[in-house]
């Protein structure tokens, strides 16, 4: 594995990565949460966009693997003074870092950096494109919910997942629409029509089924529902509906929660309680939201380990996990 740029990967590679994350998960129960695997390695978290939770998660993951982790933020650095993406990347690479975790507002920026700098690159979210570690942690948390401690080696065959919200602008939705079907899940995208991405000639969107009506999807009793963060200020009144309209059609209200039955609830955070889902839903025993956060550290440890540990025998992951690079 050279880079993690996309969540598009074959099933066996995804399962292997989730299993590696299970190994990492075990150390969270230890008193001393530290593995020596990346001792002497330096990882830079290069965040052109603010993101406290993803950056912290990568930082903890790197530190638990004994890597030196440096955070470089776009704001206040030379980046905000007009330095190009390429020059920033080359400068950081020239300092001798071993891997770069990139968050960027520009779709495709991690793939370009991977080409330019010749170091392992992890996509920590790029524009409205992908957020592969988020999809991996979603899959990890869902697999644990379903299979418990017997999750190792398993996929998500036949698990029906509804992803609800602003699909068109969501990198979380994109990565999940790639990863979950590879693991055997059936994904349905749900959202206001202007917030669904363009359809292919066969009617699918992002390669999976799309459905504007949340109520119809709830009637199908999916096994899991992922509520995406909604930013209604984005082209308010034109592309995005009002909050009231959104809640009427697409919020997981208490009433819908009751009809949904025992589906697992996921949310990538940060939540707008009362908008994407009710507080009762967020705090119910169906909610895997905090488990997702915990899973995030395990999955990111697995990714950093697979990319940077010299003794990791992972060449068979290489082709597709780095599939976004050329």
């Amino acid at each position: 594995m050279r880079h993690l740029l996309t969540a598009s990967m074959p099933r066996d590679e995804a399962v292997a990565l989730l299993d590696l994350a299970e190994d990492m998960h075990q150390i969270q129960d230890r008193e001393l949460k530290k593995l020596p695997a990346l001792r002497g390695r330096t990882v830079v978290n290069l965040f052109f966009e603010d993101s406290t939770r993803t950056r912290s998660s990568f930082e903890i993951a790197g530190k638990w693997l004994s890597a030196d982790v440096i955070n470089v933020s776009g704001k206040g650095s030379s980046v905000s003074k007009g330095e190009s993406l390429r020059d920033t990347g080359l400068t950081i690479a020239a300092m001798g870092v071993d891997g770069v975790v990139v968050r960027s507002g520009a779709s495709g920026a991690p793939a370009l950096l991977a080409d330019w700098i010749g170091r392992p690159v992890v996509n920590a979210g790029d524009g409205t494109h992908e957020h592969p570690t988020q999809a991996l942690l979603d899959a990890f948390a869902l697999r644990r919910r379903i299979h418990g401690d017997a999750a190792r080696g398993k996929a998500l065959d036949g698990v029906r997942v509804a992803i609800v919200g602003d699909i068109a602008h969501s990198r979380v939705a994109r990565s999940n629409a790639l990863l979950l079907p590879a693991l055997g899940a059936e994904v349905t995208l749900v959202g206001p029509p202007p917030l669904l991405p363009p359809a292919a000639s066969d009617g699918t969107r992002l390669g999976v089924r799309a459905e504007p009506s949340l109520d119809r999807v709830i009637d199908e009793r999916p096994d899991a529902m992922m509520l995406l963060r909604v930013q209604l200020e984005r082209q308010a009144g034109k592309v995005a509906p009002s909050a009231a309209e959104y809640i009427t059609g697409w919020s997981l209200t208490d009433e819908r929660l009751a009809r949904l039955g025992d589906a697992h609830l996921l949310h990538p955070g940060p939540m707008n309680r009362g908008l994407e889902l009710s507080s009762r839903a967020a705090d119910s025993d169906r909610s895997a939201i905090l488990e997702q956060v915990t899973a995030g550290v395990s999955v990111r440890m697995a990714v950093l380990y697979a990319l940077l540990a010299s003794d990791h025998p992972a060449p068979d992951h290489a082709s597709s996990v780095s599939g976004g690079a050329r």
Partner: peptide
């Protein structure tokens, strides 16, 4: 171009 590929790549169509 707006279409399935712009959706996939996350670029404005």
């Amino acid at each position: 171009h707006e279409g399935p590929l712009s959706a996939e790549l996350g670029l404005g169509g």
